[in-house]
């Protein structure tokens, strides 16, 4: 009985709706509509690949001994040593990218990580983005020349009196001096028969331990570090083992220690960001 009543009500309301539709129809004389179909929304991609400036291109930038895995071993480190290696990052995506985070992560067990950070306290790391006119890509020989020139610059800079004095006062002051020097730096290299003037578009200078920063790394306050789509960025990593003279740390404490780090770079889209 109840069911029947419900059905009846439904039937009634359908009739009312039909009438309403007819009523509406009486006003539909001239009509027009325009439409646009098939709008597409395709998202861009942000993807990067990396390799080092070495043969083979895979593997860590810094390693101790020459082998088939690489011919650019640093040898054992002693205070005042400085080595520069390049990381090449290609933006294989379709969106421009900007470098937002730099981090150095100690590897291994907690003891190994502690040893790594002890070394990190005594090492100054500079991450410099190399710029060439028109974004010319340097060949391996030219990059090696640049790295060697950078080595020389750092050797004179970090072992020089102004950096040493500043370092004794405060690390931040010393790093600022070093960054200024690096940003002014230009070097001419022969690249495929052409002289190319390499400059530094932006740089981070700090202790290796600061670059770890408890795992948070450093916000790259490097506004110039934009990597356009399909372009390659040369990031030069220089590590210098600082002499302890006049400083609070002790070089001898890390004699014979071998430590490992991962260098990681995070990029974000430039657009709307």
């Amino acid at each position: 009985m109840m069911k029947k009543k419900k059905l009846l009500i439904t039937a009634l309301s359908s009739v009312v709706l039909l009438c309403a539709a007819i009523g509406g129809g009486t006003y539909a004389l001239f009509t027009s509509s325009a439409q646009n179909t098939g709008s597409t929304f395709a998202s861009g991609t942000l993807s990067l690949t990396t390799h080092r400036n070495d043969v083979p291109v895979e593997g860590p930038m810094f390693y101790t001994n020459d082998s088939d895995a690489g011919r650019m071993g640093t040898g054992l480190w002693a205070p005042k040593d400085t080595h520069t290696r390049a990381m090449l990052i290609k933006n294989t995506g379709t969106l421009d990218a900007k470098l937002t985070d730099l981090v150095a992560l100690p590897e291994g067990s907690s003891d190994q990580q502690a040893a790594a950070l002890a070394f990190g306290e005594q090492a100054v790391v500079t991450v410099a983005a190399l710029a060439t006119p028109g974004g010319v890509t340097l060949n391996a020989d030219a990059l090696n020349q640049v790295n060697e020139a950078a080595d020389q610059l750092f050797k004179t800079l970090i072992n020089g009196p102004s950096f040493t004095k500043a370092m004794a006062r405060s690390g931040q002051e010393a790093f600022a001096i070093a960054r200024e020097a690096v940003l002014d730096w230009t070097y001419r290299v022969n690249n495929n028969g052409q002289t190319v003037e390499v400059s530094v578009s932006d740089a981070y200078v700090g202790s290796l331990k600061d670059l770890y920063n408890g795992g948070a790394g450093r916000d790259a306050s490097l506004p110039n570090l934009i990597l356009p789509a399909k372009k390659t960025m040369h990031l030069a990593y220089n590590v210098t083992f600082v002499d302890d003279t006049g400083l609070t740390f002790d070089n001898d404490a890390i004699q014979g220690k071998s430590v490992n780090f991962t260098f990681k770079n995070t990029f974000e889209q430039v657009k709307n960001n």
């Binding site: 930038m61 937002t100 990681k264 889209q269």
Partner: peptide, 19 residues
């Protein structure tokens, strides 16, 4: 929610010599 990508280079070794 922004597009991000990161690259890393692992296993960098710094071995201090002994005197």
């Amino acid at each position: 929610a922004i597009f991000t990508s990161s690259v890393q280079n692992t296993g960098n070794t710094f071995a201090a010599g002994t005197l």
